[in-house]
Computed example of a mutant assay.
Amino acid sequence: MNDTALARHLAATAGSLLLTLQHSGLFSAKALGKAGDRVANAFLMEALAAQRPDDAVLCEEEKDNAARLSASRVWIIDPLDGTREYGEARSDWAVHVALAVDGAPATGAVALPALGLTLTSEPGHIIPPAGARPRMLVSRTRPAAEALAVAQALGAELVPMGSAGAKAMAVLRGEADIYLHSGGQYEWDNCAPAAVALAAGLHASRIDGTALTYNNADPYLPDLLICRKEDAGRILALL
């Protein structure tokens, strides 16, 4: 199984496990989120150890191992992106599985289990055409000031949504045109979404226009822009 197929299989299977847990009716919303993090993380770590034992892993739910810094191939995992949304039984949560090779987001998969979808960095994805008015994705609970300012300058409609993966995939699916975030993220929040977006021909970068790089000593990666390539120059100029 190649890396992209493995990423898809891992993300989709973790998503299926999370749905089973969610539908069990055994947990309160807060407890469900914590249980989901643990269950999805345990599966992904065991599966990666079995399938890619020589690769390093950076995962939100695992203690960081500095040995990854000397590795060329590093899997960057968020077992449950959008824990709050998952606990509330919303649809805007995701599973992120990505592989960074020499710091670049080489392959990735983002599962949207509640929608029955898994999007990957396989080539051939067609982005639906843009509408007359741009639509910008922002956080449900804490929309960034920069995003609000750019949205006002562009006359964009704001689309609140939960998980970073759900927001990024909404651009691929034609539900929105711009995902601009400056409120703080980590590598596991955006590596898989960036890999999928770049493979689909979208623009993905830091908000100063520099490339997204991964497997850094400090995994804090606070800002992100995903949009149609033809819109990137104007948005970056506004920032």
Rank of each mutant, 00 (worst) to 15 (best):
F43D: 03
L202F: 01
R73F: 06
R135P: 06
I235W: 02
S70Q: 14
V95P: 01
V138M: 11
T118N: 00
L80N: 11
L99E: 03
A98H: 03
S24C: 09
E60M: 08
A100P: 03
G162R: 03
E175G: 07
F27L: 11
G82R: 02
C227D: 01
A237Y: 02
T213E: 10
R228A: 10
L26Y: 13
K34Q: 03
D92P: 10
D54C: 11
E146H: 12
W75M: 12
T213Y: 09
T20W: 10
A12R: 05
A114P: 03
K34P: 00
L221S: 13
G82L: 07
L21H: 10
A132C: 11
S72M: 12
A132D: 13
L17A: 14
T141F: 14
A49H: 05
I207G: 10
Q51F: 03
P219S: 12
E230T: 12
A42E: 08
H96C: 06
A111Q: 01
G103F: 02
H96V: 04
A42C: 04
G165C: 09
T213W: 04
L112Y: 06
A114S: 10
M161I: 15
P113H: 08
S24D: 12
Y186H: 12
A106C: 13
G124D: 00
L224H: 05
P219H: 09
L26V: 13
V101F: 10
Q152W: 13
G183H: 09
R206T: 04
L48M: 04
A11Y: 05
M1D: 01
T210S: 15
E175P: 02
D92C: 07
A232S: 10
T107R: 13
L69A: 11
R133W: 12
G184W: 01
A197E: 10
D3R: 14
I226Y: 07
V159N: 04
S91L: 14
P129Y: 11
D37R: 05
R234T: 15
L26R: 15
A176D: 03
F43Y: 09
L19R: 14
R234Q: 15
L58K: 07
S139Q: 08
A50E: 13
I76R: 11
N215F: 04
V159K: 04
L117H: 13
L117Y: 06
Y86F: 14
A130T: 14
A166D: 13
S205N: 12
A217V: 11
W93M: 12
L198K: 01
A5T: 08
A217P: 03
T4K: 05
D3G: 10
N215V: 07
P123T: 00
K30S: 08
G33Y: 02
R135A: 15
G165W: 08
M169E: 00
R84V: 15
D92E: 12
T4Y: 07
G25K: 03
R8H: 15
V101K: 09
A164L: 14
H96G: 00
A204T: 02
A114G: 06
A151M: 06
A5Q: 05
